[in-house]
């Protein structure tokens, strides 16, 4: 792709999470893909550098040659972000994080999510706060999935979470950013990266998150459940970049009435 204009623009500052710099502001999950080949292709196309994984029981005694996700999404190439998906209590989430740290040879960056119920997969905020406290004390660097409540987001930041990730809409719903004003309020006081996590359905949703001033966007289903996941991964990469560019550029003020783009002077009538 040729791009002659951007080379003259100042380079954007990197996304910094727990002291590490990332060029990509798109974070992606690895669930719901057809197979590992599709997972690998989509993640490469997305340009993401931080990739989430889940921790589950190993299939005992079944096909020993079955390829492992981490053989395809190598921890040497990507920052692996283990999640606590499926955990409904602080205890289970902490236990899962400890297993993940052992699994990844001491890697201590985790995505904490403690869910409230199976229908909404909404965060259980009280359990999330409790788990965050335990994990931070134990030396984990916690990227926390939470509601779009500005006070809770601030509390999680004050506790020492390295990133706060409010939902745009319920996990896997694809409804987009349901409450952009809350995301704006969260952003106003934040000193750690705020990333929209969950709810993105298509490219414009990712752009909206970035145009609001988010430091990044985390998504899974929007790419994996697209008809062509590889193409959607590309769309999301571009959407996050263009949304970020628009944020840096600063949008024009909204006006109720028209304002002509062509001059009035020199009209022939």
């Amino acid at each position: 792709m040729t791009n002659t204009v951007s080379s003259s623009l100042p380079v954007d500052k990197p996304l910094i999470v727990a002291g590490k710099e990332y060029k990509s502001r798109l974070l992606v999950g690895t669930g719901k893909y057809k197979d590992l080949a599709e997972t690998k292709a989509a993640i490469e196309m997305s340009g993401a550098e931080i990739v989430t994984v889940a921790v589950r029981r190993t299939n005992i005694g079944q096909n020993a040659d079955e390829p492992n996700l981490l053989d395809v999404i190598s921890p040497d190439k990507y920052t692996i972000l283990p999640n606590t998906a499926g955990c409904y209590t602080a205890k289970d989430a902490v236990r899962t994080c400890k297993l993940a740290r052992e699994l990844l040879g001491g890697h201590d960056l985790v995505k904490l999510e403690v869910l409230g119920d199976q229908k909404t997969l909404y965060p259980n905020v009280t359990e999330t706060l409790s788990a965050a406290e335990t994990l931070i004390k134990d030396g984990f660097k916690v990227m926390v999935y939470t509601t779009d409540d500005p006070l809770i987001a601030q509390r999680l930041e004050e506790m020492g979470c390295v990133a706060v990730m409010p939902l745009g809409a319920p996990i896997g719903s694809g409804l987009g950013i349901r409450n952009p004003y809350n995301i704006k309020m969260i952003l106003e006081n934040a000193k750690v990266p705020i990333l929209v996590d969950a709810g993105v359905g298509t490219a414009s949703d990712a752009s909206i998150a970035m145009e609001l001033g988010c430091e990044g966007v985390l998504m899974n289903t929007a790419i994996a459940a697209a008809k062509d996941p590889i193409r959607m991964a590309n769309a999301m990469r571009l959407a996050v970049e263009s949304g970020r560019e628009a944020w840096l550029a600063g949008r024009m003020p909204r006006k109720l009435y028209a304002s002509a783009s062509s001059p009035i002077d020199g009209l022939i009538i």
């Binding site: 690895t30 669930g31 029981r57 190993t58 996700l69 699994l103």
Partner: peptide
Amino acid sequence: VEIVQAIGGG
């Protein structure tokens, strides 16, 4: 005993 591994997830 629990033996776990990383699998696809979001």
